[in-house]
């Protein structure tokens, strides 16, 4: 087995075994999903809409229950371990409270944990400067651009110092340049904080640029069809985007993804 180029040890962080998710209306969102993710990995879930990638993420976070099978995170059943501090979650939209300023939004997870504002101030200010928003602590979400709002959202996810960062198509609504920039910021967070990241996306380029491993999923029913390790080393930057390695990986992942689309067409 190729040694993957991510940092950290190789202890298993997430284990999904034979997981099914069937919704109340009978839709099979995920079928027979088994996956093992190690600490320090940067894994992308890539697939067409309806392939259950977001559902899988929600189940790992414990927001959705599994219909069958089991998920453990850090040895605990999903959603039951720790006090919620271990996981940071970034939604597709920034999902900020419009009535609260940037500081209050980032402070929220600590506030729910019972920390007083004075106790939390330093941590909040640290993550804000980490995402370059130190001067916007008093701004309201409506005064910020889409990219800045997403940075606030990332800061909020990072304020509890999570081990695992779950990101559900976080940059899908942003323009290309902002997206590229934020991709680099996420990579640097991952590296400096020894995070494990699961990144849901429908962009081949994004998944190849970011991840140490791409899990390709297909729809109807949602399932894993390919599990592709990417051996290119980090740090990855603009030069990596130009490299033959990158092009090669994109080709591999693209063709794997096209396979899933063919299946869909045959079935319907």
């Amino acid at each position: 087995m190729t040694k993957l180029p991510f940092h950290g040890d190789q202890a298993e962080l997430i284990s999904m075994r034979d997981v099914d998710k069937v919704f109340g209306n009978g839709t099979v969102a995920v079928r027979d999903m088994s996956l093992s993710i190690n600490q320090g990995e940067f894994v992308s879930f890539l697939g067409p809409s309806g392939c259950g990638k977001s559902t899988a993420l929600k189940m790992i976070s414990g927001l959705l229950s599994v219909s069958k099978g089991s998920i453990t995170v850090n040895g605990h059943p999903a959603g039951a371990g720790g006090d919620g501090d271990d996981i940071g979650y970034v939604f597709q939209e920034a999902t900020l409270m419009p009535w609260a300023n940037v500081f209050e939004n980032v402070y929220l997870p600590l506030k729910l944990r019972g920390l007083k504002k004075a106790q939390a101030r330093e941590r909040v200010e640290n993550v804000l400067s980490m995402v370059g928003l130190m001067n916007f602590a008093k701004s309201y979400p409506r005064e910020l651009s889409g990219g800045m709002r997403m940075r606030v959202s990332i800061a909020r996810a990072m304020v509890t110092k999570p081990k695992l960062l779950l990101m559900d198509e976080p940059f899908a609504a942003l323009d290309e340049m902002t997206r590229t920039k934020l991709n680099d910021e996420v990579l640097s967070l991952w590296k400096t904080h020894g995070l494990s990241v699961i990144f849901v996306t429908h962009s081949v380029f994004e998944s190849v640029y970011l991840s140490s491993r791409v899990v390709v999923m297909a729809a109807r029913p949602g399932r894993v069809v390919h599990d592709i390790p990417l051996t290119s080393g980090y740090p990855r930057n603009a030069a990596y985007r130009m490299s033959p390695e990158y092009a090669e990986s994109c080709k591999t992942v693209s063709s794997a993804l096209e396979g899933t689309l063919d299946n869909v067409d045959l079935n319907h």
């Binding site: 927001l63 979650y89 999902t95 609260a100 929220l108 997870p109 729910l112």
Partner: peptide
């Protein structure tokens, strides 16, 4: 209240009172 924000409050194990005070009332 926004559904993602509700999810966020669940994720951080907000008590019903916290949910009411910081999310539902605003």
């Amino acid at each position: 209240a926004d559904h993602n924000l509700r999810d966020l409050f669940s994720l951080y194990r907000a008590t019903p009172l916290q949910r009411l005070r910081y999310l539902l009332v605003p």
